[in-house]
């Protein structure tokens, strides 16, 4: 009898733990809303979303988030343009061409890249990459959107490669054999049969790569120069949403408009990541059916 009760208690606890994740997501959302929406008591939402000036500590302060959103977009777009072709190509190479020892070595190399902490990448970006960029393009500073894009591309690549690899592996063997039996070369089989068949998975990989990049904070903050202006070129400093939160939260007075504005940026980020993940999940499920 005692045993029955004990088990029932354990099972109830387990079920409650299962609900924990839902509660946390709701809590994150609520806390971002609670602190972020407080901004709009004094600042109209149009000034926040449409404003092109981010001067949080001038008098009067301006909380236009547009330059930050555009900053994030430019850096992310650059990173994705750099990362996607390379990642899909190497996923193809690793899953279809490389074999045995070489395959393991390449996979390990990519896993290593994924394991490097972002602050270490940011540090090397500052110490090594930025001076190169500065010299190469004869710029006043090497801390630019491009520098950020390159570092972020390195961070996105392992994600995209591994999910694309999974998608390729999930293509039934019969597809490959049928294509080869019809006299296609292996490359024709890969480009005309394999890639189209794996498309939903690859799209999911790209979505998750974008999610990884747009939410990345430390490396970006360290290498993009942090100028909150609307970017006109990839060779100028920009400032992303994540970097703004990380850089300014330390100084923002708790309970001030500045503090609330940083949480409002958090809402924007949370919404973007939510949409990206939902989209990726949709693609992955579509693939399964």
């Amino acid at each position: 009898m005692w045993q029955r009760w004990r088990e029932r208690f354990i099972e109830k606890t387990i079920a409650a733990s299962g609900m924990f994740s839902i509660i946390v997501v709701i809590l994150i959302f609520l806390f971002l809303l609670k602190e972020g929406l407080a901004l709009f008591r004094t600042v109209p939402m149009t000034d926040f979303l449409g404003g092109d000036r981010w001067y949080p500590i001038s008098e009067p302060p301006r909380f236009g988030v547009l330059p930050l959103i555009l900053g994030s977009c430019v850096v992310t777009l650059g990173a994705i343009v750099l990362a996607v072709p390379v990642s899909i190509a190497s996923a193809l190479f690793i899953s279809e061409i490389a074999a045995g020892w070489a395959k393991d070595a390449l996979k390990t190399g990519i896993e290593l890249l994924a394991a490097i902490p972002s602050v270490v990448l940011g540090f090397l970006g500052m110490a090594v990459l930025a001076p190169w960029i500065k010299y190469l393009f004869q710029l006043p500073t090497g801390l630019t959107a491009l520098t950020g894009s390159i570092i972020l591309a390195l961070m996105a690549m392992p994600t995209i490669v591994s999910i694309t690899e999974d998608a390729l592996a999930a293509v039934p063997r019969g597809y490959r054999e049928a294509a080869l039996a019809l006299g296609a070369t292996r490359w024709q089989m890969m480009s005309r049969v394999l890639l189209p068949a794996a498309r939903p998975g690859i799209l999911a990989a790209v979505m998750l790569g974008i999610g990884r990049v747009i939410g990345e904070t430390m490396a970006v903050m360290m290498v993009t120069g942090n100028a909150a202006v609307i970017p006109r070129s990839v060779l100028q400093p920009v400032r992303t949403m994540t970097a703004t939160i990380a850089a300014e939260m330390g100084e923002a007075v708790r309970g001030s408009d500045h503090y609330f504005a940083l949480f409002a940026i958090g809402i924007v980020l949370f919404a973007i990541s939510f949409l990206l993940n939902a989209a990726a999940d949709l693609f992955l499920h579509q693939e399964r059916h």
């Binding site: 997501v25 994150i28 939410g215 904070t217 939160i245 980020l269 949370f270 990541s273």
Partner: peptide, 8 residues
Amino acid sequence: LSGVPSVV
């Protein structure tokens, strides 16, 4: 949760 940016 796995997709929420670390700064968030």
